[in-house]
């Protein structure tokens, strides 16, 4: 239930100066470095970046599945980093997660009906008929016939259908925020479109707020109101979807956009894509972390970490030499 004391205009989720570090054989891997962002109620924030940029770690840190090293995660007025035990467990009912690999995230030995009912059992709903009614409702909502799928096991289903089951399981407690971590990247093109459409439909039906994490810019664009671009643990650019896509301010956003293969043979593929690959997060470059691949980098970029600031285009960018004012 939404807290009635919170203002309707206040963001549902506020991440403040979040830092997540992992110890790796005596060294420190900085997976998320000083990230701040907000997600408004009913909004979809798309979080994009390449592998190892810290986008999944950020998602897990929001849920406190990975405890942040520093910073705050404020959900509906409550700082999740200060909660633990029962208080955190109760709060987590309002936040759910959908993973990339739908088959691996379902217990192979349990039937679909039990898998989807489990969150209800854990949250203490003892009435069997009540549980069954709610499981039936949510299975129908995600496009599965409860009578057909109830007694079946996950291996009897395709990846797309398993992802529908995962979505049903995430929605059964009627959460407010759902973190989708690469929910369609393991699926075929024709199935991917079905699942993206389903997520949009579920968002309307259950009044969800989504944090949608993906590496595919076109997929993120299809569902997001705002976009946040991450590179090597830091945010590069945040802004309304159309603004970021039409006038990217950060050179890394521009590079990502340029690199997407377009299904149109009249569009010549970009050549001379900024060479190199992201450096190791164990040893990130000083100053701006993108500078080693950036055509605009100079001494300032090596010396000073750029901080997010507003642009005329309506987005915020962390760059000393942004592409647009």
């Amino acid at each position: 239930m939404p807290d009635s004391t919170s203002l309707p205009s206040a963001p549902l989720l506020t991440v403040e100066q979040l830092v997540v570090e992992y110890p790796v054989s005596g060294r420190t891997l900085s997976a998320v470095a000083d990230v701040s962002l907000t997600v408004g109620r009913g909004e979809t924030l798309g979080l994009v970046g390449e592998s190892g940029c810290g986008k999944s770690t950020l998602g897990r840190a929001v849920l406190q599945l990975r405890r942040p090293t520093a910073g705050k995660v404020v959900f509906d007025g409550a700082d999740l980093t200060a909660l633990d035990g029962e208080a955190l467990r109760l709060m987590r009912r309002r936040l759910q997660l959908i993973f990339q690999d739908p088959i691996a995230s379902l217990n192979p030995r349990r039937c679909i009906g039990d898998i989807v009912a489990e969150p209800l059992v854990i949250s203490g709903i003892t009435d069997r008929t009540e549980r069954e009614r709610r499981v039936r409702d949510v299975l129908s909502a995600v496009g599965l016939d409860p009578d057909v799928v109830w007694r079946r096991l996950p291996h009897e289903f395709s990846g797309g259908q398993c992802q529908r089951v995962c979505i049903a399981r995430a929605l059964i407690l009627e959460p407010e925020l759902v973190i989708c971590d690469e929910p369609v990247s393991a699926l075929d093109v024709s199935i991917r479109a079905q699942i993206l459409n389903l997520l949009e439909e579920m968002k309307q039906r259950y009044g969800l707020t989504l944090l949608f994490i993906a590496h595919d810019l076109a997929v993120v664009k299809a569902v997001s109101d705002r976009i946040a671009v991450m590179y090597l643990g830091r945010l590069c650019e945040v802004g309304p979807t159309e603004a970021v896509f039409n006038r990217p301010a950060h050179p890394y956003t521009a590079l990502l956009l340029e690199a997407i293969p377009v299904p149109d043979p009249t569009v010549m593929p970009a050549t001379n894509i900024a060479t190199g690959e992201p450096p190791s997060p164990l040893d990130p470059p000083s100053g701006c972390r993108f500078r080693t691949r950036c055509p605009r980098a100079d001494r300032l970029c090596a010396e000073k970490v750029p901080i997010l600031h507003a642009t005329a285009g309506g987005q915020a960018v962390a760059c000393h030499h942004p592409l647009t004012g």
Binding site: A193, N197, E200, A222, D225
Partner: peptide, 17 residues
């Protein structure tokens, strides 16, 4: 069925049933 970069956000995709 491929999401297009030039379509506006929240455009329903013509999925293959």
């Amino acid at each position: 069925a491929i999401p297009k970069l030039d379509s506006p956000p929240h455009t329903a995709l013509p999925a293959i049933a």
